[in-house]
Design a protein around this nucleic acid. Structure first.
Length: 743
RNA sequence: GGACUUGUAGCUCAGCUGGUUAGAGCGUUGCAUUCACAUUGCAAAGGUCAGAGGUUCGAAUCCUCUCAGGUCCACCA
C-alpha cells in the first residue's frame, strides 16, 4: 500500500467496477424490500453546481438501505427545463444576430432539441464523479416519448374530470420573452415611481381627482371608483366622467376596495391591465378592453397607438399637462413585478390560457401532511407548505414558449374570425393577423400551418384532442406548451411507469423525496397534488430538505457575482469522499452552510487517516507472519481480553447509533460520531493499545472493528472505504453490497 | 406588512424530545516523534451559549419581549 491515499488513482476505477457489475440496480438484492428515491432531475442542458453535490444525502440513504438488504433504487433523469433552456438558446441565437421569431415553431423546436442533445450527458458524468450510485440503466428524460405520452394522458384525464379549463383572464406577461408566467415565476422589486393626481372632468360640470402611477392606461379605463363610506365623494357616485384624451364616458362607482387614506381616495379602473381592477370589473360586470398588446405596444389607444408603455406615459403626461389636468406629482415607493429572467417589468395582459383547478388537489395535498401520511423534514418547512397551498389560486399551466410539451389540443376552425395567427411564409416573411385576413391575402391554410409560430384561439373555438380530429375539417394546433412543473410534478409516477415493467407497482410510493428547500412550493407541492390525484397515493413517504451552499463568506453563489465554485474542482482537489463528508459534517439537516475549505482539508486528512489504519494492519502482518487476516461479525468473536470486549461493545453501540442517526436523517451527527470514533477511540487509543499486545485474537478484534467502521462509513465515503476493503480482504463481494453491521 | 430562520470558543459550525465540569474542525501555545500516518501524537489556553424577563428542582435547549443578521411570501392604485 502507498504511504498516502491518492483519490485520483481509485475513484474512476471503483465507480466503473460498481456500475459494470450491476451493484446500482435494485436487482442486486432480489428478495429485498423496495426502497426508492427518484433523483430531482437536473436541467438536461446544465452543468453541475453545489445543489447537486448535496444529493450526497440521497446517496447516503441509498447505500445505507442497499447494505441493509433493501432492493434500493435511485432513479436518475434530467429535465428539459422549458423556459430556462429556451432562454439560453435564444441568447445563443442573439449572438448570431437572429431571434426565435425568425423560425417556424417546428424548426425552432428541432434546433433546440439538437442543441440540448449535444449537451446532454455531461451532467450524468459529473454525477458519477461524486460517486452517486444511481441506476443508469433506468435513466429518464422529461421529453422521452413514453413520458410525454403519460403527461398528455394526465392532462386528458384532468380535462375529462373538469380539472383543467381554458379561461380568458389576466396573466403576468413578459413582452420581451413573449410568454406568461405563473405567480411563482415573478420577482418583486421595489422601485421609486411617481403618483400622479389627475383631474377627470365630470360631464355635468366640475371634476374628480384620481391618483395613479400609470397614467398611460387611462385610455383603457372603464370606471372611476371611490369608497362608499367616503363623505367627500358621496354625491359623485353615479355621475359620468368624460375621460380625457380619448373623450369616452365612464361611470363613477363605489366599492369598499378603495382605501380612503391613499392618494385622493379616488382611483381609475383599468381591468385589462391590473389584477385588482380585473376582479372589480368582473364583480361590477364591466368590460375590459386591452390597450397594451403582446409586443408591449399600445393599441386602441388613440394618440398613443404604437408607442411602448414608457413612451406612452410621457406622451400622455404631455397632453394632460397641456390641458392643465395634472394637479400634483409625488414620489411614491412601489413594488413592481419583473420577469425573473430578463428583468423586464411584467405587464398584466388578458390572455386565453389553460388552468388547473386547484381546490380539491390542494385540499388533498394539505390533508396528507396534516394526517401524518407524508412527513416533512425538517418540520419547520410544513409552515410554508401549508401557507402556500392555502393561498393558491388556479394554476396557469400554459407557456408561450416552444421548448416543452405542447398542450395536446387542437382547435376546430369553424369561424375563421375566432383565430389570430403568426407565421412565416415560404419566403420567410413574417405575418400576423386574424385568420380571416391572412386567408384573404391569398395564403393557403397549409402554408400557414407549415410556417406556424403561434395561434391564439378565442374562447369560442372548439377544443378537440388528436384522435377526435375529423378528416374533412380544418384544425389549428394549440401552440402553448406546459409549464415545466406540470410535467416534473408527475416525475415519480412517469419515471417508474416507464423504467421497467413492474417498477411502478414495486417502488411507488417512493421512500423519500430529497431536494433543496427552495423548490418546496414549485415542485414538491405540485408532486403531492398530482401524485395523489393520479394514483390516490402520496408520491413519497418523506419529503426531506437540504439547505443552500453559500460561498465562503456566506453569500449566495451566483454567476453574476462571479463567486460560483464548481464542486468538481473540489472533487479533483480533495477527492469525492472528502467533499461528500465535508458537506454533511457540521451541517444540520435543512440549514444553509457556507463552503468551508478548512472542513474540506480535515475531511481529506480523515481519508488518509483511514488509509493508514489499513497500512498498520498490513504492516503488522508483515512484521508477524503468523498472523492471518480474518474478520467476522462482532457478536461472534471470542476473546478473553477485557479491553477487546470493551472495544467490541463500544463498536456495537456505535452501529446502533449510526443506524439511528441515518434513520432520523441526522447525517451530520452520523459523520461527526464516526469521525470521532474512528480517529480518536479506535486509532489513538485502541490501536496504540493493541500495538503492544498483538496476538491473533486481539488482531481479529481489531480487524473486525475496523471493517465495521468501514461499513458504517461507506455510505458517506464510498470510494476510500471500498478501496481499503478490497486491498485488505480481496473479498469477492465489494463493500457496497456487504451487509450492514448488526449490533 | 406577514411568515420562517439565525445569533454558542479568534473563525466555520454541531448540540435530538430541558438533566452531571457546553463539543468538533481550523487557528493559537507548549512538548514529542527513525516505531501505520508530519495529511502524526500528547497536552494547554480560549465561551456569563446576543440581551432582558418568565416557566422549572434544573435551560444553550421551552415561553414572552428587545436588539442584530438572513431567506421567502404579499393585489394597495
Amino acid at each position: 500500500m502507498d504511504k498516502t491515499y491518492d483519490h485520483t488513482k481509485v475513484e474512476d476505477k471503483i465507480y466503473k467496477r460498481w456500475e459494470d457489475s450491476g451493484t446500482f440496480q435494485p436487482e442486486i438484492n432480489p428478495d429485498g424490500k423496495p426502497y426508492c428515491i427518484v433523483l430531482p432531475p437536473p436541467n438536461a442542458n446544465g452543468a453541475l453546481h453545489f445543489g447537486h453535490a448535496m444529493f450526497t444525502v440521497e446517496d447516503i440513504l441509498i447505500r445505507y438501505h442497499r447494505m441493509k438488504g433493501y432492493a434500493a433504487l435511485w432513479l436518475p433523469g434530467s429535465d428539459h427545463a422549458g423556459i430556462e433552456t429556451q432562454f439560453v438558446f435564444e441568447k445563443k441565437l442573439a449572438q448570431e444576430g437572429k431571434s426565435r421569431f425568425d423560425f417556424p415553431r417546428e424548426t425552432l423546436y428541432g434546433m433546440i432539441r439538437t442543441y440540448v442533445d449535444e449537451n446532454r450527458g455531461g451532467i450524468q458524468n459529473q454525477l458519477r464523479k461524486l460517486g452517486y450510485s444511481l441506476d443508469w440503466t433506468r435513466e429518464k428524460y422529461t421529453l422521452d416519448p413514453s413520458i410525454v405520452d403519460l403527461v398528455v394522458e394526465t392532462f386528458k384525464k384532468m380535462y375529462a374530470d373538469g380539472l383543467v379549463y381554458r379561461d380568458y383572464r389576466l396573466v403576468n406577461y413578459c413582452t420581451k420573452d413573449g410568454t406568461s408566467f405563473s405567480d411563482l415565476e415573478t420577482v418583486s422589486e421595489e422601485k421609486e415611481g411617481i403618483l400622479y393626481h389627475i383631474q377627470f372632468p365630470i360631464k355635468t360640470g366640475g371634476f374628480i381627482t384620481i391618483a395613479t402611477t400609470r397614467p398611460e392606461t387611462l385610455v383603457g379605463d372603464v370606471a372611476v371608483m371611490v369608497n362608499p363610506k367616503d363623505k367627500r365623494y358621496e354625491e359623485f357616485v353615479g355621475k359620468t366622467v368624460l375621460l380625457p384624451v380619448v373623450d369616452r364616458e365612464i361611470p363613477i362607482i363605489a366599492d369598499e376596495y378603495v382605501d380612503m387614506e391613499f392618494g385622493t381616495g379616488a382611483v381609475k379602473v383599468t381591468p385589462a391591465h391590473d389584477f385588482n381592477d380585473f376582479e372589480i370589473a368582473r364583480k361590477h360586470e364591466l368590460t375590459f378592453p386591452p390597450i397594451i398588446g403582446w409586443d408591449g405596444k399600445m393599441q386602441h389607444a388613440g394618440p398613443l397607438n404604437g408607442l411602448y408603455v414608457k413612451q406612452a406615459r410621457e406622451k400622455i403626461l404631455e397632453i394632460l399637462k397641456e390641458k392643465n389636468l395634472v394637479e400634483k406629482e409625488e414620489k411614491h415607493q412601489m413594488v413592481m413585478k419583473i420577469c425573473y429572467k430578463c428583468k423586464t417589468i411584467l405587464e398584466p395582459l388578458p390572455l386565453e390560457q389553460w388552468y388547473v383547478k386547484v381546490d380539491t388537489l390542494r385540499k388533498q395535498a394539505i390533508d396528507v401532511v396534516k394526517q401524518g401520511k407524508l412527513k416533512i423534514v425538517p418540520k419547520s418547512f410544513e409552515h410554508p407548505y401549508f401557507q402556500w397551498l392555502e393561498g393558491l389560486r388556479d394554476w396557469n399551466i400554459s407557456r408561450q414558449n416552444v421548448w416543452g410539451i405542447r398542450v395536446p389540443v387542437w382547435y376546430e376552425v369553424e369561424n375563421e374570425a375566432d383565430f389570430a395567427v403568426t407565421f412565416l411564409d415560404k419566403k420567410g416573411e413574417y405575418h400576423q393577423g386574424l385568420l380571416t385576413e391572412i386567408l384573404g391575402q391569398g395564403f393557403s391554410f397549409e402554408e400557414i400551418l407549415e410556417g406556424l409560430q403561434r395561434v391564439i384561439a378565442r374562447m369560442e373555438a372548439k377544443v378537440v384532442f388528436e384522435e377526435q380530429k375529423q378528416k374533412d375539417k380544418r384544425y389549428l394546433p394549440e401552440t402553448d406548451t406546459f409549464d415545466t412543473w406540470f410535467s416534473s410534478g408527475q416525475w415519480p409516477i412517469v419515471t417508474l411507469k416507464t423504467a421497467r415493467p413492474g417498477d411502478f407497482e414495486k417502488f411507488y410510493p417512493t421512500a423519500v423525496l430529497e431536494t433543496a428547500y427552495d423548490i418546496l412550493r414549485s415542485w414538491v407541492s405540485r408532486m403531492v397534488m398530482l401524485g395523489v390525484y393520479m394514483t390516490g397515493e402520496i408520491p413519497f413517504h418523506d419529503a426531506l430538505f437540504h439547505g443552500i451552499v453559500n460561498d465562503p463568506y456566506g453569500k449566495k453563489m451566483s454567476k453574476s457575482k462571479g463567486n460560483v465554485v464548481n464542486p468538481l474542482e473540489l472533487v479533483d482537489q480533495y477527492g469525492a469522499d472528502a467533499v461528500r463528508f465535508a458537506l454533511v459534517y457540521g451541517n444540520a439537516t435543512g440549514s444553509d452552510q457556507s463552503l468551508a475549505y478548512p472542513k474540506l482539508d480535515a475531511a481529506r486528512k480523515f481519508t488518509n487517516k483511514l488509509w493508514n489504519m489499513a497500512r498498520f494492519i498490513e504492516f503488522k502482518m508483515q512484521q508477524d507472519t503468523s498472523l492471518t487476516l480474518q474478520w467476522g461479525s462482532l457478536d461472534e468473536i471470542k476473546t478473553q481480553s477485557e479491553e477487546d470486549k470493551k472495544m467490541i461493545e463500544k463498536t456495537q453501540k456505535l452501529t446502533v447509533e449510526i443506524s439511528h442517526y441515518l434513520d432520523k436523517y441526522q447525517f451530520n451527527l452520523a459523520a461527526e460520531r464516526l469521525y470521532d470514533f474512528a480517529w480518536h477511540e479506535f486509532a489513538d487509543i485502541y490501536i496504540e493499545d493493541v500495538k503492544n499486545r498483538t496476538n491473533q485474537n486481539s488482531f481479529d478484534v481489531l480487524v473486525s472493528v475496523y471493517i465495521t467502521i468501514l461499513k458504517l462509513l461507506h455510505p458517506i465515503m464510498p470510494f476510500v472505504t471500498e478501496e481499503i476493503f478490497d486491498t485488505l480482504t480481496h473479498d469477492a463481494k465489494p463493500l457496497i453490497i456487504q451487509s450492514w453491521p448488526t449490533a
